[in-house]
């Protein structure tokens, strides 16, 4: 090799080294976090953990990926496409029943946001037994179907005494009053639709399964058993930073920051609506009795497992308590 060749290799090596060091300088450990749904006010704490620099302070470079109906965080954990994810309790229990090595490290929603909206002038609901004879919207295959079937079973209402109607994201059948009760999320759709209908002079109500003792756990943070076993410190760092984000979301002093951060991903929702959604989200996240944000509600998880067992969603108990490893410093 001639002198020119050696010089070229030296410069090439120097350039590669420069970009390698330059690229890695200041960057944290790469982590992928798969959300359960699209980024909206339900994910405000996740977004603040990133936007307010809590992940960075923990030495983590977290890529938050939006979820959706075709995304499944638990599958991605097992396939190695994600390190952490958000999943509902029914997903965790179903996956556990099929041998997925998943663990729950924090519980984001302390109350399930799922409720049913109805027109008060057409429907009177004082107890679950009033559901008899109603046309009730459910998403067949999703947890609202399981929750509604549980409510009906507890009220002693058989399937032929109600009409369960298949619903999607189009609310027209509800607006046209072809369906009496329509499933909504209390902190997002309920705020938006509720406001629109109220402004139009309608009197609306919300039927909350939680009021009748059905505690079906919603979004929680999950990771793989392997990551927890091999690097518990990393899991702790991630959860600590994430919970800082959620605590910040609960703090009224951060209201404007929270709204502006969520608006980066959800620019179509008006600011005043986002403000109302943030308030509703705070009520779902804040644990009772001064417990830390992200605490795992064991009785609620056990009840969720019992409900799924009773509905035939799982063939035998999965002993879900063994899958819960709280990392929020209770």
């Amino acid at each position: 090799m001639g002198r020119h060749g050696r010089t070229a290799i030296f410069f090439f090596g120097a350039i590669v080294l420069f970009f390698f060091l330059g690229g890695s300088a200041g960057a944290g450990l790469k982590i992928t976090y798969r959300l359960k749904w699209l980024i909206n006010m339900s994910t405000v704490g996740d977004i603040l953990a990133d936007g307010m620099g809590f992940f960075k302070q923990a030495g983590l470079d977290v890529e938050i990926k939006a979820g959706g109906p075709e995304r499944d965080a638990i599958r991605e954990l097992e396939l190695g496409y994600a390190d952490f994810g958000a999943a509902s309790a029914d997903q965790v229990i179903l996956a556990s029943a099929k041998g997925a090595p998943v663990v729950v490290v924090a519980q984001l929603f302390q109350a399930n946001p799922l409720q049913w909206i109805y027109f008060k002038d057409a429907v009177r609901l004082d107890s679950p037994s009033d559901l008899k004879g109603k046309r009730i919207g459910v998403t067949f295959g999703k947890n609202d179907e399981i929750i509604m079937r549980t409510l009906l079973a507890r009220a002693g209402i058989t399937e032929d005494q109600v009409a369960l109607e298949s619903v999607r994201l189009d609310y027209t059948p509800f607006y046209k009053r072809q369906v009496d009760l329509w499933p909504v999320y209390a902190n997002t759709q309920a705020v938006e639709i509720g406001r629109r209908l109220t402004q139009a002079g309608e009197r609306i109500g919300f039927f909350d399964p939680g009021d009748y003792g059905v505690r079906f756990v919603a979004n929680s943070v999950v990771t793989s058993q392997r990551l927890l076993a091999e690097n518990p410190e990393l899991v702790r760092r991630f959860i600590t930073a994430l919970m800082q984000g959620w605590r910040a979301a609960l703090d009224p002093a951060n209201t404007e920051t929270a709204i502006s951060q969520v608006r980066r991903y959800d620019p179509d929702t008006a600011v005043d609506l986002l403000r109302a959604q943030l308030e509703a989200t705070r009520r779902l996240i804040r644990p009772e009795g001064g417990a830390p944000v992200g605490r795992i509600d064991l009785p609620a998880w056990e009840q969720t497992e019992q409900i799924m067992l009773a509905c035939g969603q799982i063939a035998k108990p999965v002993k879900v308590a063994a899958r819960l490893r709280s990392m929020v410093g209770e």
Binding site: L94, G99, P101
Partner: peptide
């Protein structure tokens, strides 16, 4: 070595 949840 994937679980039945990923591929039955």
């Amino acid at each position: 070595g994937l679980s039945d949840y990923v591929i039955p």
